[in-house]
Amino acid sequence: MDIFWDSLSLSKTGGTFFFNDTVEGTTLTVNAGAYSVVFNDGGTITNDVNFFNTGTIILGNDASDSLTFSGGLDTTAASIASIAGMVATTNNQMDLGVVTVIANSTLVASEINFQGGANSVDGLVDLTLKPASSAADITVGQVADSGGTVFDLTDTDLAALTDGFSSITIGDASSGTGAVDVDSSTFNDPVAIVGGSLSVTGLNAGANDVLLTARVGQISEGGPGTDVTGATVTLNGNIAPGGSPGQLVISGGVALVSTDIFTAELNGTTPGTQHDQIQVPGPGRTVTLNNATLNASLGGGIRPIRGISWSLLTMSRPVPA
């Protein structure tokens, strides 16, 4: 039997409030107090819910549960929030304190802020952080939120993610169309980042795999130096190292997928400034081309003369300092 209410206020001295069936409520007021709140099923609460209780909050039991706090969610006062399945807002903000993710989970919001400090979010499962709007731009690894409609995962948010997740996915893999800007950022687990287009520099996943997917636009370098570090970096989409010629520098193995298009502008013979190049420095790297499509074009008035050549993908260079 579903649990319905219009306006519900919780207040208790110790103990636990249990919601053991699907909830459908408009307003839920969770007053301060040392008690816990448990949602053992899914449902929807229309208005913003700020959990002021300092006990435990349990949001779902398994990966099939789906809880929507349409107006927004704040669990920062709780000692810990346990999350399983889908926890979403309707394009509103989600502020989380200490979190344990106990089953494969997806958090959906206009903005997700992990405010519990370093290593305050842990789990051994797949965690997806997804903007509520598929058209939202995404930043990863900025110092501060950029505001507006941008879905920001700042350095503080990333530092909250404890080593141990099976994977971390950022973005909307099924319909994301926004631009993703990945700045200097560190991941301790396998990471997948997906959006309409990707500009990336300084993404470091150490010995973990990286998957970058541009659904409708291009995958490009976001600045000088090493752009991506990982065990194997899989590029999925239209790879255009520079918006204009540039160098996409990858430290690690590289795998293209068969549907990839490597768009290489050849406007001169200097890599990075006059022609596109994927650079995979260091010894012992493996690059798998996987029958991807090469789409090269001449520009800049260059006249192809005998002997001219372009190194489109090089593994012959040392690791940049």
């Binding site: 690059v287 003369i305 190194s311 090089t314 593994m315």
Partner: peptide, 11 residues
């Protein structure tokens, strides 16, 4: 390339 493992386009 110098390590014989680059993708190169030559006229």
């Amino acid at each position: 390339g110098t390590d014989n493992n680059d993708v190169v386009l030559m006229a």
